[in-house]
Design a protein around this nucleic acid. Structure first.
Length: 735
RNA sequence: GGGCAUUUAGCUCAGUGGUAGAGCGCUUCGUUCACAUCGAAGAGGCCGCAGGUUCGAUCCCUGCAAUGCCCACCA
């Protein structure tokens, strides 16, 4: 054997560095990432028989659109896991003979990107206002050219078999057309309106935010009891007192019945407050109204109504329009002139401090209690978000929500694990109109003459599965009228199959894609939503770059190789449970690579480079080691197929690992050292080939590399080799 | 205030109505020609707590606790 060792072109140890980039280039050059180069003719469509799977795949295509990462981002562990999962699905389906499309791209990420570039410019002492809108957007485009594709290159390092010829960006010219088309469509339907309402305002980003773009933090504050004439009101925000225009009590509250509908006299802290006709500048009148929003059991049972600075108060105002509205906090987070000369220009917290002092001096503070409550923060910069009266564009959600709800309830869209369906339903059933305008510069302009606002980033990403496939150019709004001559992608690949994503954007993104697809294409954009695990630190904490608790997947790939990294990620993905990240499983992955490598080495040496795969039933001994291993392999193939269809990737990988290492290597290979008959060698060869195929979606680089070194005639690349199907136990896989 | 998830070996996690499993770590032995990124053997668990159902529960039911995550306009 030692003579033949030289013929066997495998070093004793597997080195991913010598393999990965080279193999990736081979794949790219092969063109097999592009479905146009895949022949789906060999796909077996069993006559009328529906396979029992969770995937609804009646077509011969299999499509996944990648959740487009922000151009500001770099790959984090969540991306790496998600990309690996999608690659497993795509690679398996490709081997099964489907025309697979995995469509890559990036999101312009309005606020996030604007913030990053602004920060960058600030280092040079430049503000976006110095540049002006046009120049600033040019700067962003420059920035995008430089850094925007980093994350896509990182996907390549991970082995992602995406069709790069179809890479999309949400600010592409065609994509902008799609966004415009969608807006106009809604507008014509009367679902888009402009209105002055309280919105969530970030005073740092200088824009409104939707409810979903908020984060919450518990804050230990004070609860102030303030005298209003004969009454006492509790509040955590005494500075909004300056914007009070009414007091509300519950209509059933006997204590305050006599005040309802009457004006009461209160002392003002600043005689410059421009109220209506103050009889005495130091005293103002305020109306007491009855409204169910007041809970008699909370605080004193009285609400101070500040319509311009509180969502609930705004709703009260909508029911009692005789009440005036007074905007005392401005867009920059400072008190306005309406707050009075004494407070004008102060920041909110300064004003709060000052007014508490002033009220105390006037003897108007009854008492102060400690109080814990949630404050809202901007999800992009963590500034405290203010409810603020503002003129914005809104999209009516009633009918769109109903469409999406029906699709999910009827099972046209399935969530995996199923419990995430409830997250979607809770949101969609209590939905409010969507504030779709943002007061930033980077994004899709609201397509209305004279408008300076841009659209919410999520308005455009809601169209991702449509716009990336060519909508609306190739399609006249209705699925039936798609003209394949204009753009075959939409017709061929829509509806896509699996949408794999992190849980935190289920409503921000997934829900909105569902109703967009239903509205514009009359069918959901995907049949299955796979909500993957969240990767946490070993202590169960959130991975955070700023806290230094994040793990960089690129570091892992550098250290252990991409296959080992993928192994570690998938090994820990069991049933969608959160992952408390443990690097030792990547170590195990690297060891497993080496094991597979050496199993191959052994078999090539053993067979002297002549792989004999011509095994024919029956076995010489149906109860012998050869038969036993073969039947175990058949069971493995079936289990792995079932597990992947159920999205139990971790389970599938555990099964393969167990078989390869402990059954194949530890037992059978040891057995084969003393049993050198032809049948044993055939089983060795067949088992190797089948396990390489099974492993390819999980560990694509090493399996492709090994495959390329196997002495087999008329060999295809492993990436398009036939996937081991579940067949009867008396069938030969290979051949 | 609601809801969801988790709680099993030192660590990260599988698992089943009937003497508990993996990976990593640890101990001992092994320089046999695939692999020391290896092999063999081994130590190590009142399967969160308290009740209940059952002949029998880690697994089913109830309650509790701890941790994490979502949602909610209680001023």
């Amino acid at each position: 054997m030692s003579n033949n060792a030289e013929k066997i072109d495998l070093e004793p140890q597997y080195d991913p560095k010598k393999v990965e980039d080279r193999i990736y280039k081979l794949w790219e050059n092969s063109g097999f990432f592009n479905p146009d180069n895949l022949d789906s003719g060999k796909l077996k469509v069993e006559g009328g028989k529906k396979k029992k799977t969770t995937l609804n795949t009646p077509h011969s295509t299999f499509t996944i659109v990648v959740p487009p990462p922000n151009i500001t981002g770099s790959l984090h562990m969540g991306h790496a896991l998600n990309a690996t999962i999608q690659d497993i699905l795509i690679r398996k389906k490709r081997m099964e003979g489907y025309k697979t499309l995995w469509l890559p791209g990036t999101d312009h990420a309005g606020i996030a990107t604007q913030n990053v570039v602004e920060k960058d410019l600030k280092k040079q002492g430049i503000s976006r206002h110095d540049l002006g809108r046009e120049k600033f957007i040019e700067k962003i485009m420059e920035w995008k050219e430089k850094y925007g594709n980093i994350i896509l290159d990182q996907f390549k390092k991970l082995g992602a078999s995406m069709d790069w010829s179809r890479t999309r960006f949400t600010m592409d010219a065609e994509y902008q057309k799609a966004v415009e088309e969608a807006f106009i469509h809604y507008y014509k339907k009367g679902w888009i309106y402009q209105g002055e309402r309280t919105v969530n305002w970030c005073s740092r980003c200088q824009t409104s935010l939707s409810d979903l773009e908020l984060e919450y933090k518990e804050e230990k504050g004070k609860f102030y009891y303030i005298k209003y004439g004969p009454l006492t009101i509790g509040t955590v925000r005494p500075e909004t007192k300056l914007g009070d225009t009414a007091l509300a009590v519950n209509p059933k509250d006997q204590r305050y019945k006599k005040y309802v509908g009457k004006d009461i006299l209160i002392q003002s802290v600043d005689n410059s407050i421009p109220r209506d006709k103050p009889a005495n500048p130091k005293e103002i009148h305020i109306r007491v109204i009855a409204d169910d929003a007041a809970d008699p059991n909370f605080g004193t049972g009285i609400i101070k109504v500040t319509p311009a600075h509180d969502h609930a108060d705004f709703e009260i105002w909508q029911r009692h329009q005789e009440v005036p509205i007074l905007k005392v906090i401005g867009e920059k987070g400072r008190m306005t002139d309406k707050a009075g000369i004494r407070y004008e220009g102060m920041k909110i917290l300064e004003a709060r401090e000052q007014i508490v002092k002033d009220l105390t001096e006037l003897g108007l503070i009854e008492r102060i209690e400690d109080y814990a409550h949630n404050i809202s923060l901007c999800y992009r910069c963590e500034t405290v978000v203010e409810p603020l009266l503002s003129k914005q564009w809104f999209l009516k959600m009633k009918e769109l929500a109903e469409l999406a709800k029906k699709a999910v309830e009827s099972g046209k869209v399935k969530f995996h694990p199923e419990r995430w369906k409830n997250i979607f339903l809770d949101w969609i059933e209590n939905i409010r109109d969507w504030n779709i305008s943002r007061q930033i510069w980077w994004g899709h302009r609201v397509p209305i003459e004279g408008e300076t606002d841009v659209l919410d980033t999520w308005f455009s990403s809601a169209l991702w599965p449509l716009a990336t496939l060519g909508w609306p150019q190739s399609c006249d709004m209705k699925h039936e009228t798609c003209d394949p001559k204009n753009g075959t992608d939409l017709k061929e690949f829509y509806q896509t199959q699996v949408l794999s994503t992190a849980r935190d954007i289920i409503n921000l993104w997934v829900s909105r894609m569902i109703f967009s697809g239903l509205e514009f294409m009359a069918s959901p954009p995907f049949s299955d939503v796979l909500v993957h695990a969240t990767i946490l630190t070993k202590d169960g904490k959130r991975m955070s770059k700023s806290l230094g608790t994040g793990i960089d997947p690129m570091t892992l790939i550098e250290k252990y190789g991409a296959d080992a990294t993928r192994f570690g990620l998938i090994w820990q993905s069991m049933g969608g449970q959160d992952i408390h990240w443990a690097e030792e499983h990547v170590v195990a992955g690297r060891k497993f690579c080496n094991k597979i490598w050496n199993i191959t080495r052994f078999i090539l040496l053993k067979t002297e480079g002549n792989l004999d795969t011509n095994f024919i039933f029956p076995f010489k001994n149906e109860h012998g080691a050869n038969a036993q291993l073969h039947y175990q392999l058949i069971a493995l193939v079936q289990g792995v197929n079932e597990d992947i269809e159920k999205f139990d990737f971790g389970q599938a990988l555990h099964s393969i690992h167990e078989f390869v290492w402990h059954e194949f290597a530890d037992k059978f290979i040891e057995y084969s050292k003393t049993n050198e008959d032809r049948e044993t060698k055939q089983i060795l060869a067949n088992t190797l080939l089948t396990t390489l195929k099974l492993l390819h979606p999980f560990m694509p680089f090493i399996t492709e590399e090994i495959w390329s070194k196997l002495p087999i005639e008329d060999k295809k690349m492993l990436i398009i080799e036939s996937w081991p199907e579940q067949e009867s136990s008396k069938t030969n896989y290979i051949g």
